Amino acid sequence: MEQPTLPEGYTRRPLALADAERIADVMGAEELLATGEVGVEAADLVADWSEPSYDLATHSVGVLSPDGDLVGYAEAYGGDRADAAVHPDHHGLGIGTALARWVVARAGELGADRVGMPNPVGSPGDRLLEALSWEARWTSWVLELPEGRTVPERPLPEGHTIREATGADYEQAWDVVESAFLEWSERPRQQFDKWLHHVLGRPGFEPWNLRVATDPDGAIVGVVIILLYGVDDPDGAEGFIEKVAVRRDRRGLGLGQALLAESFACARAHGAVRSRLSTDSRTGALSLYERVGMQVIQEWVNRAAPTSPHLSPVE
């Protein structure tokens, strides 16, 4: 079978940090088509791409139109995670198929046995990967706390507090988050310095974005990371809970709900008119968020394929 190539006149090159805004535009255009809204900002890409161990020349590829405009991209991060997008104006030309092939080859070269990526259910990207025999691994959902609603507050257990994290808290916070997420996520433990870069190194980070729950002895037993999107949006900013984690031996005490209530209140205080988070079928947490009044507004599927380092690169 002849391997797919780029359409005539289209070329490729590795990405550079300066491409973040344009690639965010490409991703946003595809999200808008699939979900009716844009949920990505250039800051998300800068946080990933500026991480010291991330090499754009190795981990990324951009597709340029005959006019020289970036219209598609893919990245393989190492491990089994990848992402890709093609601007809707350039759909149907085989670019997505070529990028999927590049992802499979590059992930294999980087040592992964499988590689996967998320797409909104039924979107062009999802239909393409399904047609390429990428298998569904898990489902994820974006949930929203509608404007004007609040998460019911839960009193904290005696002696527990929630506060803004300080530098002395960072390593404990990392341990709580990584330990909680590795209970269901099959990946290597993220190193502390890399985790810290993605939290503090995201453009626009402010100290209130990282909050911790402490027990009577001052040990960190819960962590939440809050992002603020669309600060210049005339319709109002959006708070997004990137991570929420409670230490295993402190679950069932209401700390998770208390952290959610605190986070959404902080986001509102900084201009958010609504708040969101995402969860997936591996965590079993969907019903918990629905019980506190959050509503599913998007459904995504992560599809994966076995890698092959022997495929030739995209032509």
Rank of each mutant, 00 (worst) to 15 (best):
E2C: 02
P4C: 08
T5Q: 14
G9P: 10
T11S: 15
T11H: 09
L15S: 10
L17D: 07
A18P: 03
D19S: 08
R22H: 06
I23F: 05
A24R: 05
D25Q: 14
M27H: 11
E41G: 11
A43Q: 12
D44W: 07
L45K: 08
V46C: 01
D55N: 13
L56V: 07
G62P: 05
G62C: 07
G62I: 06
G62M: 07
V71Y: 06
V71R: 09
V71D: 08
D80W: 10
D80I: 02
A82H: 05
A82M: 06
D83P: 00
D83Q: 11
A84L: 15
A85V: 07
D89P: 04
H90K: 05
G92N: 04
G94I: 07
A98M: 09
A98Q: 08
L99Y: 06
L99P: 04
V103C: 03
R106F: 04
R106W: 01
D113I: 00
G116V: 10
P120M: 09
G125H: 09
D126K: 09
D126L: 09
R127M: 11
L129Y: 13
L129R: 14
L132T: 10
W141T: 01
E153R: 15
G159Q: 06
E164I: 13
A168E: 15
A168M: 02
A168V: 13
E171Y: 11
D175H: 10
A180W: 02
F181V: 07
E186R: 12
P188D: 15
Q190R: 14
Q191Y: 00
D193G: 01
G201L: 07
F205V: 09
W208C: 03
W208G: 01
N209V: 00
I220M: 08
V224L: 04
I226T: 14
D233M: 02
E238R: 15
G239D: 05
A245H: 05
V246R: 05
R248H: 12
R248K: 14
R251H: 08
L253A: 12
G256K: 03
A261M: 04
A267K: 07
R268M: 02
R268F: 01
A272F: 01
L277R: 08
S278N: 13
D280A: 10
A285M: 06
A285N: 10
E290W: 02
V296G: 05
V296N: 06
W300L: 13
V301K: 10
V301D: 02
P306K: 04
P306H: 04
P309T: 08
S312G: 10
P313M: 10
